[in-house]
Write a protein that binds this DNA or RNA. Structure first.
Length: 566
DNA sequence: AAGCCAATAT
DNA sequence: GATATTGGCT
């Protein structure tokens, strides 16, 4: 009968004593094989008649762990081993033949053989047959045929229908084989699906779910995944890890436990590949179902008991910041505000399982960096190309952006904004230049789908991309309001200090003066919003005070203090 | 411990 | 080259 994981775990000198059913019409080769097997301490029951073998497994199924069956096309009395194969559902069955016909091999595998080997069977191969038993013992459960394999399955099904003609489908098979061989390891991992314990050299049908059995082919899982499945030399690498994973207190050989673990980890990683975002939880479940999900044979030992175990042993998963995930991120940042948007809080708000603070911090770093880099560049570009005086009129109001318009709009949104500053150190006069926020300052790269200016509702900026000269975006009042926004973090400089407070305390006056001076020194430019031109009366009064009776052609001045709106 | 950032890895 | 992770420093 089929070995369970428990059986194997309690099997002290596994695989010695493994019970092998040998069905081979060729007595000499049967004897040869039997001798080799017995030399390995396997327990061999040899048959040369298919029906006898079948009755043996039905009457005393517990006497067999695995079967090695010769495909004897020439034999007239039997169905060449296929009958056995189809009926020995629970027994891992290795098919062998002198006939290297590809379609025969395909057929064997499709009918549920765990492996196809050409005769003569080498000792190495025979020695390793126990792996199928282990695989069987630890693999189980439901699995769904991946879409990628459906065409293959279909093709094989069609191959199987006229069971007598072997050669006819060669060409078709070769096409499909091409298909098969293209399947990547990833696909294999995926499709091998429920295999926590990687399949031995030959990919398998699920035992007991063999094709053509019970007429329920559609829902069966038939895996034709690896190229190796049809390689004549079946000593494939995947065998190596098939049992090492057991790690069952010495019951199974664990020569390469580390590798096995890593493999498992790779499986896990593979499993998570393509998952949107970092649904690690999902991955976990997926992986566990893939790994453990043993319905008939509980596997206690060797199976990673939980996610942490896996996690602990594998390198960190790479978080894919999908647009959706990033959206969450941005929302969290917006919600928190500039001064509160630190990784740990963002993480809390995002509520994404599996995401670490580190992940968020890293992303935040990139996020800030992007802004810092893109905005000044964008601004530079615009600033250096100013030739049109009309445009200059607009830009000359730059100083009014001296402070970030945190709440420059009148929407309810109290969302602060990352200040977009000019080149660090380039403003020696203390006037900070803030990017005109109406611009698409930061072109997000393809994978950055979030709003180019998070924290700001683009529509509230009210500034066209190329603002008309007479349509300044911000008023002084707005920016003066900004002056009183005490807490903001300036990310332009390495350390996020609340530099704004400094500005407020030490530079507000200075900046105001600066703005006023500029307005005075260039009277031909429109006054920035927020500055009110003095009335003609007040000007005249002032002039007369100073002993001037007429208005000079060149503006000599407006009293600054009287014109600033505070 | 948490945050930031440069270095490093993928 | 872009993006994510790691590691050092504060």
């Amino acid at each position: 009968m089929v070995c369970t994981a428990n059986d194997i775990q309690g099997w002290t000198d596994f695989p010695k004593g493994l019970k092998v059913l040998l069905l081979d019409g060729d007595r000499s080769s049967a004897a040869e094989t039997k001798a080799k097997l017995e030399a390995m301490d396997y327990n061999v029951s040899a048959f040369d008649d298919e029906d006898a073998a079948l009755s043996a497994i039905s009457s005393r199924s517990e006497d067999f762990h695995i079967a090695i069956v010769e495909v004897s096309v020439s034999t007239s009395s039997s169905q060449g081993g296929f009958k056995f194969l189809q009926n020995a559902k629970d027994l891992p069955t290795i098919m062998t033949s002198n006939n290297q016909c590809l379609s025969t091999m395909m057929k064997c595998i499709a009918l549920g053989a765990v492996e196809f080997q050409n005769k003569p069977l080498s000792e190495d191969k025979l020695r390793n047959i126990w792996q199928h038993v282990v695989h069987k013992a630890f693999s189980d459960g439901e699995s769904v045929l991946p879409d990628s394999l459906k065409p293959v399955k279909k093709s094989v099904e069609s191959l199987l229908q006229p069971q007598t003609e072997n050669g006819q489908h060669e060409s078709k098979i070769s096409i499909e084989l091409d298909n098969v061989s293209r399947l990547s390891d990833g696909d294999y991992d995926h499709s091998a699906g429920s295999d926590k314990y990687p399949a031995p050299s030959t990919p398998q049908l699920k035992q007991g779910e063999r094709l053509l059995d019970g007429g329920d082919c559609q829902e069966q899982s038939n895996y034709f995944t690896e190229k190796e499945s049809v390689e004549l030399d079946g000593d494939s690498k995947s065998v190596d890890t098939s049992c090492e994973n057991l790690n069952t207190e010495g019951t199974a050989r664990t020569r390469k436990p580390a590798k096995a673990l890593i493999k498992g980890e790779e499986d896990f990683a593979e499993c998570c590949k393509g998952e949107s975002a970092v649904s690690l939880n999902q991955c976990h479940r997926k992986f566990l179902s893939k790994a453990g999900g043993n319905t008939t044979s509980p596997n206690k030992a060797g199976v990673p008991r939980d996610f942490r175990e896996i996690k602990a042993n594998r390198k960190k998963m790479k978080v894919d910041w999908t647009p959706e995930l990033h959206k969450k991120f941005v929302q969290a940042v917006e919600q928190l505000g500039i001064d509160q948007a630190i990784p740990s809080r963002i993480l809390e708000l995002m509520k994404v399982e599996g995401l670490t603070r580190h992940n968020v911090a890293s992303h935040l770093q990139k996020y800030r960096l992007q802004k810092r880099q893109t905005l000044p560049r964008e601004e530079n570009r615009r600033w250096t190309n100013q030739k049109d005086p009309m445009q200059r009129n607009y830009y000359v109001q730059r100083p009014i952006m001296a402070y970030p318009p945190y709440h420059s709009n009148h929407t309810i949104s109290p969302v602060p904004v990352y200040p977009m500053l000019g080149q660090p150190g380039s403003q020696t006069d203390g006037v900070k230049v803030w990017g005109p926020p109406g611009y698409p300052m930061w072109q997000p790269s393809q994978s950055w789908h979030w709003k180019p200016f998070p924290g700001v509702h683009a529509d509230t900026w009210g500034c066209p991309v190329l603002p008309p000269p007479q349509a300044p975006c911000f008023s002084y009042t707005q920016n003066m309001a900004g002056l009183h926004n005490a807490k903001a973090v300036d990310y332009r400089f390495g350390t996020p200090q609340t530099s704004f407070e400094h500005h407020t305390a030490m530079q507000a006056e200075e900046v105001v003066d600066k703005v006023v001076n500029e307005a005075m020194s260039k009277p031909w430019l429109p006054l920035p919003l927020g500055l009110k031109p003095p009335s003609a009366d007040s000007v005249l009064a002032e002039l007369s005070k100073q002993g001037m009776s007429s208005i000079p052609l060149v503006n000599k001045g407006v009293k600054p203090h009287s014109s600033v709106q505070r």
